[in-house]
């Protein structure tokens, strides 16, 4: 293990850890501006995290070990994923081979699994309502995540995201139809996985609540870790989308390159944020059950990508 690899690893992991809340802050601020509001500061997510870290933890009467300790594990899972996929630096870093693309998808599922279990331990009606909703869509979400990851794997014949990233840098491969449909499918999935689908709320927040219900009973440090974890998750999935699907170019190598990559990623993220801003503010509100149709379209798109690739290989 060389010092270069160590420094590149530190840059990538710290970059993910420290900058992920910033993008959420920027998106919220720009969204407020588009809606004619002044909006919160772009640093608001950081203020929230600091505030929560100082608050006491409220433990629902029936909850116990999983509720109290689950957030540490969820946060660690997202942190581990930040070692394994190209989210800042374009070459493998320390521990990258721990899981491949598919293994990474299973780690995301593990985090989701623990979030459901810790939420259920609170034995709250509102939480159970939200868990019920989250689970209702997981069959489509999980299948789409797998097929999207595999869609790019099949194009290159390997399940290694770093190889795929280099492969699609060529314009011919980038504009290959299976890659294009997988890109659209992944973007739709990213909107769902990061809770950015506009749902009909009908005035009561619980009516359209899915993701937020899982942290409904949390407070203090537990809530801080779960919120921070969700920022990291959003960053990880968004960055994979940018680096392997939408904008695979521009990242530099070497220890200095790794630091400059933080700036490159910032520019890429601005593109993603602007696209998302347009989508979020122009898309009509969904009814809850329409989420299924939305995900089904994403799954079909990724499936089309797979079928085209396999038939093309034959």
């Amino acid at each position: 293990m060389s010092w270069d690899v160590i420094s590149e690893t530190i840059t990538q992991v710290l970059g993910v850890l420290l900058l992920s809340p910033l993008y959420a802050g920027i998106l919220d601020r720009l969204k407020a501006v588009v809606e004619g509001r002044r909006g919160p500061s772009v640093l608001q997510p950081y203020y929230d995290l600091v505030k929560l870290s100082r608050k006491e933890t409220l433990l629902p009467r029936n909850a116990g070990n999983i509720f109290l300790n689950g957030p540490y594990l969820v946060f660690s899972i997202y942190l581990l994923i930040s070692f394994v996929i190209p989210v800042v630096y374009p070459r493998p870093v320390i521990f990258t081979p721990t899981v491949d693309f598919l293994g990474g998808a299973l780690l995301f599922s593990l985090a989701g699994f623990i979030k459901v279990y810790e939420a259920m331990e609170s034995s709250s009606n509102l939480v159970t309502l939200g868990v019920s909703r989250a689970l209702s869509f997981s069959y489509l979400g999980e299948a789409t995540l797998l097929t999207v990851f595999i869609a790019v794997a099949l194009i290159t014949g390997t399940n290694n995201p770093y190889v795929t990233m280099q492969y699609v840098q060529s314009l011919g491969h980038y504009l290959f139809l299976p890659h294009v449909s997988a890109t659209v499918a992944f973007y739709m999935l990213w909107l769902f996985e990061t809770g950015r689908l506009p749902l009909e709320s009908s005035g009561m927040s619980e009516m359209g609540m899915i993701d937020d219900s899982l942290v409904y009973e949390y407070s203090g440090k537990g809530l801080m870790l779960l919120k921070w974890g969700s920022y990291i998750k959003s960053y990880l999935l968004g960055s994979v989308f940018l680096n392997v699907f939408l904008l695979p170019w521009g990242l530099l190598t070497g220890p200095l390159g790794a630091i400059l990559d933080l700036g490159v990623m910032f520019l890429k993220w601005m593109v993603l944020i602007l696209v998302t801003l347009v989508v979020e503010t122009s898309l009509a509100k969904f009814r809850l059950f329409k989420v299924q149709d939305f995900l089904a379209v994403a799954l079909v798109l990724s499936l089309i990508s797979l079928i085209l690739t396999v038939i093309g290989n034959g």
């Binding site: 870290s53 006491e56 409220l58 433990l59 540490y72 509102l126």
Partner: peptide, 15 residues
């Protein structure tokens, strides 16, 4: 890294 936590037991919120 997140430091010691203070825990208080409460009833879950059901509106």
């Amino acid at each position: 890294a997140s430091g010691r936590r203070r825990v208080r037991t409460v009833d879950p919120w059901d509106n």
